[in-house]
Design a protein around this nucleic acid. Structure first.
Lengths: 160, 160
DNA sequence: ATATATTATATTGTAAGCGATTAAATCGCG
DNA sequence: CGCGATTTAATCGCTTACAATATAATATAT
C-alpha cells in the first residue's frame, strides 16, 4: 500500500504542470552542476595530467589499492565501456598497473605505481583549492552534500 | 575584507582532511547523480528517438522558439562544440530547422518543425513518469532542487 | 568429463563534452 | 571608406558515456 503512493502524492496533490517544471528543473540543475564541476576541475587537474573522471578513479585507488575493475566500476557507477579505456590511459601514462588475478584469470587487478602514489601528494591541495573557488561555507556544503546523497540513495535503488 | 574569507573559514575551522573528504564526496555525488539520471532518461526517451541532452534542447525550444544558437548555449550551459553537432542531428531527424538570420548572417536561428512541435505532446508524460521512478515526495524534491540550485548559483559565478 | 550457463572484462558504434583553432560576418575607429 | 578587432558559429582532436555485442575464464549441470 505504500509502494507506489508517491505516485498518487505527486500526481494528485499539485497540478501536473507544476510537477513538470519542478522535475525538469531538478534534472537540469544536476546536469548543469555536473558539467560546471568538470569545467572547474579541468584547469586545476591539468598540471597533474588528469581529467576529472581519471581523478575520481585515482581518489578511489588512493583510498585502497589494488582493486578489481568490477569494484571500481560499482564504486564509481562507471560502465566498463567507460572504465576500461580510462584505466588503460592511466596505465599508459604510468600511474596504474593492470594485472590479471592468477586465482581467476577473468579478473583484472588495478594497482598504483610509484608515480601513481606520488601523485597523491601533488593532488593533496586540490580539494581545498576547489572549495575556495566554490566559496560556500562548510555548513552549506554539508547541507548540499546530504541532500544530494539522499537523492542518490533514492534513485540508485531503482537502478538495482 | 569579505572577498576571500570563506577561505579562512574553510581552511581554519576544521582540519583539512575532513574538508577533503567532504569535497570529494560532494563532487562524486554530483557526478554519480548526473550520470544516473541520464541512464534513467535513456529508455524513457528512446521511443521519441531523443537523447537526454537533445531532450533538454527541445524543452527550451518548446518554451520559446525560434532561438539563436548563442541563446541556447547560454541557457543550457552547453559549449558550441557540443551544441552545434547536437542541433544538426535534430535537424537531420526533422525536428528542428536551422536558418541564418538575414539581419546578421553570423547568427543561426533554430526553429521547430511540425514534427518538433508534435513531439511535445508525445513528451508530455515524461516528467511524471520520471518523478514516479525517482519516487520521492514532492517536498523532498523541492528541498533537493533548492539546495542544488544554490550550489549552481555559487559555482556559476566563478566561471568567467 | 563435456556441454551449458554465468561472470568479468573488452570492444564497437554513436553521442556528448570541451579546449583550441578556424572562418565568416559585423563593428568601430581612424 | 578601409582595416583591425570582435562576435558568432563550426570544426577538430581527444576523452567520456553507454548500449550492444563479443570473448575468455570459471562455475554448474547433466
Amino acid at each position: 500500500m505504500t509502494t507506489s503512493n508517491h505516485f498518487k502524492d505527486n500526481a494528485a496533490s499539485a497540478d501536473t504542470s507544476e510537477l513538470t517544471r519542478l522535475d525538469n528543473q531538478l534534472c537540469f540543475a544536476f546536469y548543469s552542476v555536473s558539467n560546471a564541476l568538470t569545467r572547474m576541475y579541468g584547469p586545476v587537474l591539468a598540471p597533474l595530467e588528469l581529467t576529472y573522471p581519471q581523478y575520481l578513479v585515482m581518489l578511489v585507488l588512493w583510498e585502497r589499492a589494488p582493486r578489481g575493475m568490477g569494484e571500481l566500476s560499482s564504486q564509481l557507477g562507471m560502465d566498463f565501456g567507460t572504465l576500461s579505456p580510462l584505466v588503460k590511459r592511466l596505465e599508459k601514462s604510468g600511474r596504474v598497473t593492470r594485472t590479471r588475478d592468477p586465482e581467476d584469470e577473468r579478473r583484472v587487478i588495478v594497482g598504483l605505481t610509484k608515480a601513481g602514489e606520488a601523485l597523491r601528494e601533488q593532488a593533496a591541495g586540490i580539494p581545498l583549492e576547489m572549495s575556495c573557488q566554490i566559496g560556500l561555507p562548510q555548513d552549506e556544503i554539508v547541507a548540499v552534500r546530504d541532500a544530494v546523497k539522499r537523492f542518490l540513495g533514492a534513485i540508485s535503488q531503482e537502478q538495482r
